[in-house]
Nucleic acid binder design. Structure first.
Lengths: 161, 161
DNA sequence: GTTCGGTTACTCGGATATGTTCTGTCCGAGTGGTGAAGG
DNA sequence: CCTTCACCACTCGGACAGAACATATCCGAGTAACCGAAC
């Protein structure tokens, strides 16, 4: 069970976008250059965020990506779900159904004790992620390193390509 | 992010083992036959549980697998960890380190705000799983369907191969 | 000076390869039971 | 009848393929800025 590395990239990029001027767009190539990431692949992750309604994309010169809504309204869970998909990590295959007998009208994904416990655990995980927004992360960093927003904007301005 | 299907198999098999006579061993082929699973592949998962100290294995006739300790002392987290490995799902690649500057003595896996939040979420997930033992699952099923332990033993007795 | 239109550079978006992990299969090493032979 | 021993079926354990997914790359469609010419 391994989470895609794209989640880390997406979260960092969202925070960086939150530090830009409101309405300012940043192309994927620059967002990738910030962390020396492969541009085309980060682009793919950002597309997923756009499809999920977290970012909006603009084509052409001075285009790029920007946050589709306030950073207070984007949770970490939103980003994780956009990249990883909405499905649970544990997917009950209902192997109980493979025992001979009557399984009519039974959904073991809901009734199997194992499935229920796994679901509870996953909900606890989601609850934690849903309780943390991009704005929260931003605030945490700014409190520790107040110079960060300025540094980020500077680095973007000086990035070649 | 997808959890191995082997986790589901392993948990169901552990519960089945808990319903056997104390000290009774069950070969992988029968444990697999119970759910019509591929025997060799389930065997592989059970080997992982044995390596983790959850099961003990015996070779030769009348051999097989049995629980290495009381079902009260085997948590769902133990089983998940045995199959999936001990590593976190989210693995911080420390992309912050790829920004020019001084990163001497900094471990972003511990200090990065994103990594910390992901870690908290994962701990919440683990806490849930660690709070549920095989004995708990067993009790839940027995309460709903008291005939299950007998049915399971019967099915094992009548299984060919 | 203003407007219009063509050109151009830029950006996203999806289609296409490559590598890694999960899934599934196979066969050999070791083990304990079993049964026949001998005392 | 009891003991001994060789044989054999059984079981795990790890080595070996195939499928699915994540990673990485490339190129085309569309768009907005820009520049020059005409009015």
């Amino acid at each position: 069970m391994r989470m895609s590395e794209g989640v880390e990239w997406a979260l960092h990029s969202c925070i960086n976008l939150a530090w830009l001027e409101p309405g300012e767009a940043m192309p994927a190539a620059k967002l990738a250059g910030f962390f020396s990431l492969p541009a085309a692949y980060l682009n793919k992750q950002l597309q997923a965020l756009a499809r999920a309604g977290i970012l909006t994309s603009t084509s052409g010169p001075r285009g790029g990506f920007r946050l589709a809504r306030a950073s207070e309204d984007i949770t970490m869970l939103d980003v994780v779900t956009a990249i990883e998909g909405a499905e649970q990590a544990f997917r009950c295959e209902e192997i109980l159904r493979r025992i001979p007998g009557d399984h009519e009208g039974v959904d073991y994904r809901k009734t199997c004790a194992i499935s229920q416990s796994m679901w509870r655990a996953e909900m606890a995980w989601r609850r934690e992620l849903a309780g943390q927004t991009i704005a929260d992360l931003k605030r945490t960093v700014e409190k520790r390193e107040p110079a960060t927003p300025g540094n980020v904007r500077n680095r973007f301005a000086n990035l070649r390509t």
